[in-house]
Simulated scan of single mutants.
Amino acid sequence: MFKPTRRAVAFSMLAFLAACGKPPSKFKAYNGPAVTQVVVNKGDRKMYLLHGTTVLKSYDVGLGNVPVGHKQFEGDGKTPEGVYFIDRFNPRSRYHLSVGVSYPNEHDAALANALGRHAGGDIFIHGRGPDGNRFAQKNRDWTAGCIAVKDEEIEEVYAMLRPGVPIVINP
């Protein structure tokens, strides 16, 4: 009858643990050309990451739950239109990962103020996360005004972008 030694048992346990491995990280590395601009075409539901005039990556996107028109105030469900900048990164987003957009600018704040409202904020490019996956199954445009991509796609976007990169959001 075979009786395993302590060494054989320990080696087997180490091999088993190594085979299990760690789950893949959501933080990816990117070593390609710098992204110099992000362009979102709301009508086409497309986002492009550019280096100069070269498209590095393109993504299908979901928008605010009222996808037509420029965001005017907090709670209107619209995604802003205009020129903004990437201004922050949230590694603990409830939507997997998120990259901040500098909305509102001075013009946006003045417009909301003229309407007697608050412009809002917290506009991001983000993944879906568990909540977003449920919403996206029912409606492509499900956010409160953000730009949504799949979780594996936001991992690429998060790695490729840097603060200060302009984002142009077209109707």
Rank of each mutant, 00 (worst) to 15 (best):
A8N: 05
S25Y: 06
V149M: 04
N113R: 14
L97V: 11
A159M: 15
T143Q: 02
L115H: 09
N90L: 09
N170A: 05
D44Q: 14
A119N: 08
C20V: 07
K28T: 04
D141T: 05
N31P: 03
H118N: 03
D122T: 03
A112R: 12
D87V: 08
P33R: 10
V68D: 11
D76H: 09
L50C: 07
G21P: 01
G21A: 01
L49N: 10
K57R: 14
N31I: 03
G132V: 01
S25D: 06
R162D: 03
A110P: 07
G77A: 02
A136W: 04
G69V: 10
A15G: 15
E156I: 10
G116W: 10
F27T: 10
C146P: 14
E156S: 11
L111V: 10
Q37W: 09
H118G: 03
Q137D: 15
M47F: 12
A148M: 04
H96D: 13
T79V: 00
G32L: 00
R88E: 12
T53V: 01
Y48A: 11
A18L: 02
K150M: 05
R7N: 12
E156G: 08
F135E: 09
R140A: 10
Y48T: 10
A119R: 08
H107S: 14
G21E: 00
K22R: 12
Y158W: 08
Y84Q: 01
Y59T: 00
K22Q: 10
Y48I: 06
P4E: 04
V101C: 01
T143S: 11
E153D: 15
P67A: 13
G116P: 07
R140M: 08
F135S: 08
F89V: 14
L14Q: 01
P4T: 04
A18S: 02
V39M: 11
G75H: 06
P80T: 14
L49M: 08
V165L: 02
I167L: 13
L17N: 04
N41G: 01
P4C: 09
I125Y: 00
P166R: 03
E152K: 09
I147S: 14
I167E: 12
F11P: 06
F16Q: 13
G100H: 06
L111S: 04
A144F: 01
H126F: 13
A10M: 09
G69D: 10
A29K: 15
A136V: 06
H70W: 00
P33Q: 10
E106G: 06
A110G: 09
H70N: 01
R117Y: 10
F89S: 09
M13N: 14
V168K: 02
A110D: 06
G127R: 11
G164Q: 02
P24V: 14
G43I: 09
P163L: 07
R117L: 13
K138G: 13
A8Q: 05
K138L: 15
I123H: 11
Y103H: 08
F135V: 05
K71E: 06
R140S: 06
L111E: 07
L56Q: 12
R162I: 02
S58K: 04
R162W: 02
